[in-house]
Structures are given as structure tokens and as C-alpha cells.
Design a protein around this nucleic acid. Structure first.
Lengths: 229, 229
DNA sequence: TAGGCGAAGATTGTACACGATCCTGGCCTC
DNA sequence: GAGGCCAGGATCGTGTACAATCTTCGCCTA
């Protein structure tokens, strides 16, 4: 944690990664202003590089850029939240199916190591880290499916999912996820595409059902905007 | 066409649009180098703005950026080509279904006007323009479905589709598309979601089948890379 | 003549400075 | 006292200069 004197130089990619990580681990909250000078100081780079990074994050949907106003961590609306999970529901089941058709023994090992880290994070109470790993698990599936285009799209959707979870998660057992992931690995190990497909579809429904997307739970009017920071 | 002395100022968004249009209309070929100074001169802006635009295009997949080498119009491989259409096949049918559930009379009118322009372009022999309009048609469907997230993803996929078509299209009647689009409009007008879904699915299969994705038709080894420009 | 080395040119990467725009807070007027 | 106006500060947008890197081409050597 003593990363102070971070200095050195970070390329734009590094900053994108660091910021993405921070958002995934819920270390920076939706709506937070990302001042260019400030971010530049933190990472020891000029505004030019920060600008690139923020623009990149803007494209993934993690950051909203307003002209002459600056960059803010995105605050997905309820509609957007639904949309993100709908899109994932269209893409991921079929991707899991493809992954089940191609998964090698090595892939299974990697997935199991992944799950272990996920459990460790949960056990250590690091819910942020656990969430990030949970997202990475889905990405790993796409990687196994050997489908770069969809992998890239899913990466964006998972990023936004993190924001959605930060905003709309109703606290419950976070462990049920692990069960789903375990079952998925089993299906992949046994090369059962149809099972994998169904499990992923069900898993996404589960995730969505654990969000509180009732019509107006967290109003994000300018009023709240004024109260929160 | 006498757009010379373009000068004035164009913001980054404008340049993105102009370049995207040019690619969609096959006015600039895959693999072409996009020199920053050159683009800047053409549009009358500094390199900073060009840089932003190119980076944006890089994110949509239309341009490939190599560090210290520059920006090039992307050259999708056969695998990428398949991937793009697979992703579309997962997203668009369901989107068409949603569109059929929501389409208003106004929407139908807009779609029909769109088709008319498409026909006009085909009749005028402007195949590039026709292709662009054809892509926009699919985007319009996503807009009607009122699903911004998927719309944005489809926008990216259609951009890449244009590149794929530029590279792998085997010349045939370009008109069959119009029939598909017409049938889709009918389904939307009659609010027949299932029909719309199936039509879109079939339409995408048709599109894919008109590509020449046999194993090694257009080799793009470094040899070709060296010969082409 | 083939191969490797090195310098010059070209192109991108980054920082910085200046101009434009927006927000904030105080003051003036009604 | 309320509302509008204006100036000051802060922040972003863009052009430009300089540094880093890559490519190219000529030259030297075996």
C-alpha cells in the first residue's frame, strides 16, 4: 500500500489500467470528478497523457466526458444497467458454449486458480478485489472461446457492470456467484456446451436479480449530485 | 465535390465522422497509412485534434494504432471477419425483435425514407454510399429498439463490417439486401417481433454467405503488405 | 557482393503555453 | 431582500516545440 512517491512514468495504458482497477474495486465512486491535473500529479505524467487515458475510459463507458466540464466516473442509469445485462445475456451464454467446446486442460487449471483467488479475496473480506476477479472470470471464458471481438465487447460490458453493481447492488451473499462459476468450470471440463450455455444464462439472470432496479431507489437528480460529494 | 479549401475548423468528432464515412464508402482502403500531419492539413487542424480522432477510431476498430509507427486503416483477418458477423448474429436478431415491438408509425416512415435513399444510391451506381446507407439501416433498427448500449456496440460492428466487405466481398447483386430490408420494414410495420427476429437472422446469414472467406484468398502477409502501397 | 553498422530523416510521444469556456462569488439595482 | 450582471478564478481545448523512437539509406568491411 505504500505506493507513494509513485512517480516514475506511466504510459496512458497504465493509467487506464490503474483507474479501471480502482473503479472495479470500488475505490472510486460513480460520479466522482477526475481532474486532469490531479490525475496527472498522482501518476507523475503531463495532462496530455491523462487526457488520452480519460478519453480511452470514455470509450469503454467507464467515464463520461463533458465538453469544457471535465471527466467524471460514469453513473449508469437504471435503464443503462438493464441494457448492460441484456447485452451480456445475448453474448455470454453462446460464448460459454464455444468455450466448452474448446477448453483445454490448461484452461481448466487457469480457471480453477482464478476461482481460488476469488475465494481467497472473499475470505479476506476484500469485496472489491473479489468483484474484480469475478469479472475477470467471465473474460477468461471469452478468451477460452477464442473470440477476440466478443471478448473486447464483454470487457466493456463487465466494466460497466462494476459500476452498476456499485450503484444498485442489494447486499446479499456474494458467494452464490462462486457456485455458479464452479458449476461452469465443471461444464467446461466435461466439454458440455449446452450445459455451459444454460449455466451462463442462468448466472446472468441471477446477477441481474440481485440488483435493486426498482423504479426510483437511488435518485440521481442534481439534488443528490449536490449532496453526495 | 469541390470541397477543397476545406479549412475552417473541424473538431475531433467531425474528423472521426468524415474518416468513418470515407471508410464506409470505400474511399480509403484497408491498410492505408493515416499520417497525422497529412490528415491535419486536409482538415485544417493541428496534430492534437487528429490524434484524438485517430485514437477514437482505434477504439472502434476501424483503425489500428502501432506505437511509434502510426495509424493505419484496419485490415480485418478472416477470423476477425467471421467474429464480427458472429457477434452481429448474436445481437441484431433480438434487437430487431425489440424494434418490432416498439416501432411507431414515424419510425416506419423514417425507415422507408432510408430505403428510398438506398435505392437511389444503388440506381446512381454509388455503391459506396449504398453500403453506408445499408449499415445505417441496421443502426436505425437498434435506435428504434431503444437500446443505446447495444446500438453503440452494433455501430462498432457495422464499421468493421464495412472493412470486411471491402476486403472479402465477392461481387454479386447488391440488391438482395434491399429485399431483406423491405421485408424487415414490413415485419416492423405489422409489429411481428418473431418475424423480424427471423428475418434479421437470415439477413445476416445472407450477408456472411456473400463474403469470400475461404482459407487463403487474400493473403495479407508482409509480402502483400510490401506490394500493395 | 553480401552483410552489418551508423548517421540522417521522418514520424510519433510528451510537455507546456496560450486561448476559450464555464463556474463561482460578490456587487449593484430594483 | 431577490434577482441579475460582471469580474475573477479554475478548468478544459488546441497549437506548437522539443525529445524519443523508428526507418532508411549509404558506407564500410570481410
Amino acid at each position: 500500500m505504500r505506493d507513494l512517491e509513485p512517480a516514475a512514468v506511466s504510459s496512458a495504458e497504465d493509467i487506464v489500467l490503474r483507474l479501471t482497477e480502482a473503479v472495479h474495486e470500488h475505490r472510486i465512486a460513480p460520479g466522482m470528478k477526475l481532474n486532469e491535473d490531479e490525475v496527472g500529479d498522482v501518476f507523475g505524467v503531463g495532462r496530455t497523457v491523462v487526457r488520452q487515458a480519460l478519453r480511452t475510459l470514455g470509450h469503454t463507458g467507464l467515464v463520461r466526458i463533458e465538453r469544457n466540464r471535465g471527466a467524471f466516473v460514469a453513473k449508469p442509469t437504471i435503464k443503462e444497467a438493464r441494457e448492460v445485462f441484456e447485452a451480456r445475456a445475448l453474448l455470454e451464454p453462446q460464448t460459454a458454449r464455444a468455450a466448452a467446446e474448446r477448453a483445454t486442460a490448461d484452461d481448466i487449471v487457469r480457471l480453477e486458480e482464478h476461482i481460488d483467488r476469488e475465494h481467497a479475496a472473499v475470505a479476506a473480506g476484500e469485496s472489491g478485489q473479489a468483484l474484480k476477479l469475478s469479472g475477470d472470470f467471465h473474460l477468461e471464458i471469452a478468451r477460452i472461446a477464442d473470440h477476440q471481438t466478443i471478448e473486447e465487447i464483454i470487457r466493456q460490458l463487465i466494466s460497466r457492470s462494476s459500476l452498476v453493481i456499485a450503484l444498485y447492488w442489494k447486499r446479499r451473499a456474494a458467494l452464490c456467484e462462486s457456485h455458479s462459476h464452479h458449476a461452469l468450470i465443471d461444464a467446461l471440463r466435461r466439454n458440455e456446451p449446452q450445459t455451459a450455455r444454460d449455466l451462463m444464462a442462468g448466472h446472468l439472470v441471477d446477477l441481474l436479480s440481485q440488483l435493486d432496479l426498482t423504479d426510483k431507489p437511488k435518485v440521481q437528480t442534481s439534488l443528490r449530485e449536490a449532496l453526495e460529494p
